[in-house]
């Protein structure tokens, strides 16, 4: 993190609205994409993003090392998203239904995206989470381990299984092998 970012966090801790606004702007894509990858729908991802920032700013006083802010924020976003997935799963039996219904086929790029989204939706939330942290954001294994609070060996094997599962579903969707 750069000095300017650390300064923003210090100001945000004192409730400076401009600092808070800038931090949200800087990290909203990161948080939203994480939430979307796990939750697989825009409305829930928006709620999770908002909730993650609110929780982060309210508990900013408990963050000991300002340099770890991005990892810490990612951890909050992942936790909130996974909690929401669980809550949804308790309410509805098939949370992926709306994705299947809401997207129409079309051009190659669009249909590839739909295939990806469907395949990702078939993974377990834990597998989706590692895929999102690695493939969406390019986090290193040690960073993923820190965000998820699991050993690096677990990151490695979970990522392997997640990718193989995704590959299997994608081959199924597209009919290749």
């Amino acid at each position: 993190m750069e000095q300017a970012d650390l300064e923003l966090i210090r100001r945000a801790r004192h409730g400076d609205p401009q600092a808070i606004e800038t931090i949200v702007r800087n990290y909203q894509s990161f948080v939203y994409r994480t939430a979307y990858g796990i939750l697989q729908n825009a409305a829930d991802a928006e709620d999770a993003t908002q909730e993650a920032f609110i929780r982060a700013f309210r508990s900013l006083g408990r963050l000991r090392e300002d340099r770890t802010f991005p990892t810490w924020l990612a951890r909050i976003a992942v936790r909130i998203s996974l909690d929401m997935v669980q809550a949804k799963a308790r309410r509805a039996q098939d949370p992926t239904e709306e994705i299947h219904g809401s997207v129409a086929g079309g051009e190659d790029a669009a249909s590839l995206r739909i295939d990806l989204e469907r395949a990702l939706a078939k993974l377990s939330p834990e597998h989706r989470t590692v895929i999102v942290l690695r493939a969406f954001h390019g986090l290193e294994y040690d960073e993923i381990a820190e965000v998820l609070d699991i050993p690096i060996g677990t990151v490695r094997s979970r990522l392997h299984h997640a990718r193989m599962q995704l590959r299997m579903h994608l081959s199924g969707e597209r009919g290749d092998s």
Binding site: I20, R25, Q28, S29, Q50, I54, R113, L116, A135, H137
Partner: peptide, 26 residues
């Protein structure tokens, strides 16, 4: 697959009013 996921991720954008939403809630 990784490249496809990464380019898909880049198309996902948080709503523009997210900073305001957070500020309002706070």
């Amino acid at each position: 697959d990784d490249h496809a996921l990464a380019s898909w991720a880049r198309t996902l954008a948080a709503p523009a009013d997210m900073p305001m939403r957070v500020l309002n809630a706070l």
